[in-house]
């Protein structure tokens, strides 16, 4: 496979995954805020700021009044905002386009439909009452894409590269969500006798990661900071956890480079090393200093992505 095309496939995977997480974050935050148990979490300004924060485009001016429709447009459909869903989907398709000869017609067609759906979604409808429709369609279409990736591609290097992109992005987005919900939990504590560890925001976080039901089933208790973090970071059986994503990245890099030889300069080595660190970690160590954990894991993910780039995409 061409190095350039591999790079495109990797980023196609990342952008598909990214669009889904951003869409779900919008949906869950917006709708769970409507009947949230405390005033702070119900506050529309608070929710809009959280959305921008997660997107990596936080509003620094605390006194500024954010207009809902502007924020939704900016995150959802503004083609001039590089972080918006529409920009992400465009990039996903553009990357797919240049690797078109390598992916299945079925997958390409699904990406293309996805792209046209987002591109043609009426702006006025979206900002007024289309948020649910738009974001849940994105969630469904990305699920279809994942199905097509798994079900219509040969499980060889093309598949491995896409899946590495998907999983590195998933770990990144989950971490970003943890970061912004951690931030929200800090901000909202005390407003209604709410303690940080029992904040309503942890439930929202789990829903953003589509992991709430599973989590309830596993712990059979109301989510707290510690159980939520344990589930979303360390539990390898939770399909959205950082650990699970790292395991997947590890599995797929071995498809690209099955070599068993000791080579501390390889991507496989680096992934194994990061994975090992979280495999045997106590959640208490993380909870003690969530900020540092977030910085560390994001940094490790960037390093992995750079290493992939260096080993497979540059010549």
């Amino acid at each position: 496979m061409l190095a350039r095309v591999a790079n495109n496939l990797f980023w196609m995977g990342r952008y598909i995954e990214r669009s889904e997480h951003v869409a779900r974050y919008l949906n869950v935050n917006y709708f769970s805020s409507l009947d949230a148990p405390n005033i702070k979490s119900q506050d529309r300004q608070f929710v809009l700021r959280s959305m921008l924060f997660m997107l990596g485009d936080p509003e620094e001016d605390e006194s500024k009044f954010l207009k809902e429709q502007d924020v939704l447009y900016s995150i959802g459909l503004d083609p001039n905002n590089p972080f918006s869903i529409i920009s992400t989907v465009k990039l996903a398709r553009e990357n797919a386009n240049s690797a078109r000869d390598l992916i299945s017609t079925e997958l390409y067609e699904a990406i293309n439909k996805f792209y046209h759906f987002v591109l043609n979604y009426p702006k006025e409808v979206f900002v007024k009452n289309g948020l649910h429709d738009f974001t849940s369609n994105i969630a469904e279409m990305t699920a279809i894409l994942r199905g097509k990736i798994r079900g219509t591609l040969l499980h060889d290097s093309v598949y491995a590269i896409i899946m590495m992109g998907v999983n590195i992005e998933r770990a990144t987005q989950i971490t970003r969500m943890i970061n912004s919900k951690y931030n929200d939990a800090l901000l909202s504590q005390g407003s209604h006798g709410d303690k940080f560890s029992k904040s309503f925001e942890w439930t929202t976080l789990l829903k953003c990661a589509e992991s709430y039901d599973m989590m309830r089933r596993f712990y059979k208790k109301t989510p707290t900071s510690i159980t939520t973090l344990e589930f979303l970071i360390l539990n390898p059986n939770c399909p959205r956890s950082v650990m699970n994503s790292l395991n997947q990245v590890n599995e797929h890099v071995r498809m690209l480079n099955p070599e068993k030889r000791y080579n501390n300069d390889s991507t496989a080595f680096l992934i194994g090393r990061v994975r090992a660190e979280y495999e045997f970690k106590y959640v208490e160590e993380i909870e003690k200093d969530i900020k540092s954990f977030i910085e560390d894991i994001l940094d490790s993910l960037v390093q992995i992505s750079n290493k992939v780039d260096e080993e497979f995409f540059s010549y």
Partner: peptide, 12 residues
Amino acid sequence: KTMGVELVEGRD
């Protein structure tokens, strides 16, 4: 795709 060969650009 249908020939099963690589599609390259000059920079590849």
